[in-house]
Design a protein around this nucleic acid. Structure first.
Length: 653
DNA sequence: GTAGGGTTAG
């Protein structure tokens, strides 16, 4: 396929030569063979169409095989057939420059700009390569910007940029991270059956791990078979994920069976450390402590031949500490730290500290937990948002709110960004100890830092504020959030009731006014009845009727103006058309119309692209549908949140 | 100048 440039040019020259000599004759003949200029033009169009269907390259290849028996005509390629992704060799020149520019934006953490730049380039004269697009998708995935990721993916799909295996892997990972294993499986099925791209071992690691994490052990086990069918060998990584799945469902037999199966495949020598921790879990489940500890000896003992990575150790640490062997876990942890000498030998990592911190928490030793957590830096490990959240959560649960707040303070110092979870935990625990203002302050901080709480969190906040009589404050949070969240009837009613209870019926009516003005909001019958009832208490139900009638009147007026304007436009358009001479409209030369066709197509595509960008911002329909179900606990969110990264909220607030 | 030696905690 990939003819080098000189070869391709040679082909073209060869092709051109006979044509050149034929040319005079050809032209004359053509003139003779048509009766009218129209017929000649029609033939020219046909020829051009043929040329469009058969690109010069395939023509060149075919003419090479002239001597061979006539090959059956190639069927016209289905334009919907999946395309083969571009090879890495296309990443040169301008496209490489573009790639580097976008990588720079990613490094600067400006993902939105990176995605926008990518989109704009799609219909420019410098198309981004799939490698560039993958880099953006990857960055979006790492920052949990799932909706943005899916939106960009849809955009490039519509633009006909062929995905490669990494693109597919990113999509699988996205759906699995969003807790949409069924969607991931659907994509996998389609990929497996229709894509010209082959899966990689990583594809299966992602799928198996993700399915196990989503409680789909059966499907994960199926993947092991699929892997074999695709000519890939399930390795110990895949096995360790599956064993983990069995461990979570308490199925010791499953674990042991998998271990034996893997051992057999490896001719009885299993030196991959990752499976040993999970094997220990299997024995612990059965109450076979002796065997579990023998297994521990085999993996971590003096004479062990087993290769233990930090991750492999962490599995073992976990098996020990969750099965009443925390002391042994601590001993192993010390050994790991001694063994650790980066960058040559990495025996501990972030996870090791998290497992031990959790172990201390489970023993009620919170001071030690915090201490070990803080000691991470001594071993060139740094905590991430999730580890902070985990420890903050456990401290809060055990009445250590101020210690938790201290850790929260350290996040900023360490350059770790708090996320919604961080703020919501702190807010909730402040409420629990009646520190309502502090809780509200955490909420405010969350919104100010660009994070997006879901409706449930917002509802808890106003609930608390109203409970302590802070109706003004509650209303000010309503004003902020009404633009960001899709409020449901209950949220409206709650705010209205609070206002009504303190005699602020005018504010209630103002809320109704705003709801009626807001096209994305609905003033339901039920809400209407509720407002009426509240107003009736003060004998003011007429105010609502008046307000609604006034709105109707204004709407009708606006509509009439709109129609009038449209008619005026139509009239002037008609006038313009009739002023054109027929010759101006139909006297266009054939060739001219043909040659402009491509340009028109390009313009059409480009403007289609632009409108896509805009549609993307509002949430493309397909992605919106998917994301709607992805954002399971924020399903009441409005459409505009679809591309808002944080709207995809898998967090059980 | 994409991706992968894999883990844990919400």
């Amino acid at each position: 396929m990939a003819l080098s440039k000189p070869t391709f040019l040679t082909h073209l020259k060869t092709l051109a030569r006979p044509h050149r000599s034929l040319r005079p004759c050809f032209v004359t003949l053509r003139h003779l063979s048509f009766n009218t200029p129209e017929e000649a033009a029609a033939e020219r169009r046909r020829r051009k169409r043929r040329l469009r269907i058969e690109p010069p390259l395939s023509y060149a290849q075919r003419s090479q095989q002239q001597a061979q028996p006539v090959a059956p005509p190639k069927p016209i390629q289905n334009p919907n057939a999946p395309k083969i992704p571009e090879p890495v060799t296309v990443l040169t020149g301008n496209r490489l420059n573009l790639h580097n520019k976008i990588l720079k934006l990613i490094r600067e953490n400006d993902l939105e700009e990176a995605a926008l730049y990518t989109r704009h380039s799609v219909y420019s004269n410098c198309r981004p390569t799939i490698y560039t697009i993958n880099a953006v998708l990857n960055a979006q995935l790492r920052q949990s910007k799932y909706a943005d990721l899916l939106s960009l993916h849809r955009f490039i799909t519509l633009a006909g940029i062929a995905p490669n295996v990494i693109t597919h892997n990113l999509i699988f990972q996205t759906y699995l991270d969003c807790r949409k294993p069924d969607t991931a499986l659907e994509h996998y099925k389609q990929f497996s059956n229709e894509s010209p791209v082959n899966p990689s071992p990583t594809t299966y690691r992602i799928l198996v791990k993700g399915l196990v994490d989503n409680g789909k052990l059966e499907e994960a086990l199926e993947m092991k078979k699929d892997m074999l069918e695709k000519g890939l060998a399930p390795d110990s990584v895949v096995y360790s994920y599956l064993m983990l799945g069995y461990a979570r469902s308490g199925d010791a037999d499953g674990i042991l069976k998998l271990f034996e199966e893997l051992k057999e495949k490896k001719d009885g020598v299993l030196d991959d450390g990752e499976v040993y921790g999970n094997l220990m879990k299997g024995y612990f489940i059965r109450g076979m402590e002796k065997e579990a500890m023998e297994c521990y000896e085999e993996a971590c003992g003096e004479n062990s031949e087993v290769k233990m990575s930090a991750v492999a150790y962490n599995y073992v640490l976990e098996a020990l500490s969750k099965n009443g062997k925390f002391d042994e876990a601590l001993r192993l942890f010390e050994r790991m730290k001694n063994e650790h000498s980066p960058p040559r030998r990495l025996a501990v990592n972030l996870g090791s500290f998290n497992v031990i911190a959790d172990g201390y928490c489970a023993e009620g030793k919170f001071k030690e937990a915090i201490e070990v957590f803080r000691s991470m830096g001594d071993y060139r490990c740094s905590p991430d948002t999730l580890s902070f959240n985990n420890l903050i959560d456990q401290l809060c649960q055990n009445g250590l709110l101020s210690e938790a707040e201290e850790l929260y303070g350290e996040m900023g110092d360490k350059g770790v960004n708090p996320d919604e979870y961080t703020y919501v935990v702190l807010m909730d625990y402040c409420f629990k100890v009646s520190r309502i203002d502090d809780g509200a302050a955490y909420f405010k901080k969350m919104v100010e830092s660009g994070l997006k709480p879901n409706s449930a969190v917002y509802n808890r906040l106003v609930d608390e504020l109203v409970k302590v009589g802070k109706v003004d404050e509650a209303k000010s949070f309503y004003d902020i959030m009404v633009k960001k969240l899709k409020m449901d009837d209950e949220s409206y009613k709650f705010m209205m009731k609070a206002l009504s209870d303190v005699g602020r019926l005018d504010d209630v009516l103002k809320m109704v006014d705003e709801i009626l003005d807001d096209e994305s909001a609905e003033f339901s019958e039920e809400l209407q009845a509720f407002v009426k009832e509240e107003l009736r208490k003060e004998g003011r139900e007429e105010d609502l009727t008046k307000l609604m009638e006034e709105k109707e009147r204004l709407k009708a007026e606006a509509k009439a103006k709109e129609i009038e304007a449209a008619e005026a436009t139509q009239r002037s358009a008609r006038a313009a058309v009739s002023s054109l001479l027929p010759s101006k409209l139909f006297g266009k030369k054939e060739d001219e119309s043909e040659s402009t066709e491509a340009t028109e197509n390009a313009i059409e595509a480009a403007s289609g692209g632009e409108s896509q960008t805009q549609a993307g911002n509002e949430g493309p329909i397909e992605e919106a549908t998917v994301m709607e179900s992805v954002a399971s606990d924020t399903s009441s969110e409005d459409e505009s949140t679809v591309t808002d990264s944080n709207a995809v909220d898998t967090k059980p607030f």
